[in-house]
Amino acid sequence: MTLPTFNIDIIFEIINKLKDDGASLFNFLLLNKQICELTIPILWENPFKFCNIKVESKHYFIIQTYINCFNEDDHKKVISILNSEFENLLYNENEIPLLFEYGKYLKEFNIRDLSNAVISWYKIFKKKNYLMNSIYHNEVEILKNHLFCSIMRQSQRLNCLNWNIRFNDKKILKIMQHKIKYLDYLILYCDGEYDINIAKMYINFFKNHFQNLSSLKINILYDNKCTEDFISLVKSKNNLEEFIFDYESVKWNADKFDDLITNILELRANSITKL
């Protein structure tokens, strides 16, 4: 009996339907070259979503893969941050030729996941090379900023952005501006005290660089200092269909956000389908 043959479009639809099923995607990689080539872009849209946060080795692998995709200038910067004497150690990770430009497939930029992954990479890199006695907080933060910019540079287009308004690095905005033009989902959060001017700068930047934002989520926000800025952001997005505000994190202070919720309802009452 001859087995049925599916055309490439049907195979792609099957893979895409299973895009949140990590086990199936990893199995597809092993079938044949063509199916592997269809699966890799989907798997690397957001590789972190298939990783348990406690499994640092997976985070290490993802960050190392991104580093192996860096151009020469970005590689040199990583080496200079870590220390020039580690050049051979870093390049030894790149002995196996890459089959794909993995970074260009990134479509979901989650700064929290990336931050955790970079810390895991840094710790394992130091441990593998017997350098655990020299871990420096400032070095990690500088490394994070550089890797965020370099990974963002590799991406071709983002669909989802999960952003901490405490993060302060204007260089990444210049890299980001052409990649978020058609962004669909924006999640903003703050995990502690923040500079109000930096937060306002980000919100204004996002307002001016999105065209068709359909979903906005505000998560973990402890005060209402940016209420007017958020309202202005929503006002500028005619296609907004979903607005989610995490009351759970601020329920002790929820009444401060009444103006934000009320104004957004008034502005987008005819378009919002989920609140």
Rank of each mutant, 00 (worst) to 15 (best):
D191T: 12
L18N: 14
I135T: 05
S236H: 04
K58H: 10
I151N: 04
I175H: 07
N219C: 11
D246S: 02
C190G: 09
Y130A: 12
F125K: 00
N164E: 14
I11T: 11
A254D: 08
R166C: 13
L260G: 05
K181N: 14
L173Q: 07
N238I: 12
E241Q: 15
I79F: 01
I124C: 02
D258G: 04
D184S: 12
N7Q: 08
I198F: 01
L18A: 13
Y247Q: 12
N204M: 06
L240G: 01
A269P: 06
K207S: 14
V234K: 02
N138K: 13
D184F: 10
I220D: 11
I198T: 09
E93L: 14
V250F: 02
G103W: 04
N52Y: 09
M201C: 07
I172P: 06
L213N: 02
F125C: 01
L240W: 02
I175A: 08
A269N: 14
N197V: 00
K174R: 15
L221K: 03
E242L: 03
E87S: 10
I220Y: 12
E85N: 11
V78N: 02
E248A: 09
S232A: 15
N212L: 05
V55A: 08
L260K: 01
I198L: 06
K179I: 08
F109P: 05
K217P: 01
I231S: 00
C36Y: 00
K123N: 08
I15L: 03
W121K: 03
I172V: 14
N208M: 09
F28M: 06
F100T: 00
I67S: 05
K127Q: 10
L98I: 07
S271I: 08
Q154D: 01
F205I: 02
N162C: 11
A117T: 01
K77S: 10
K274Q: 09
N16Q: 13
S24Q: 06
L186F: 03
N238R: 09
H75F: 10
K33S: 11
F230R: 06
L82M: 09
C51Y: 04
I53C: 09
K77H: 11
F61A: 14
I79L: 00
D258C: 07
F167H: 10
N219P: 04
F210I: 11
K235C: 04
I53Y: 14
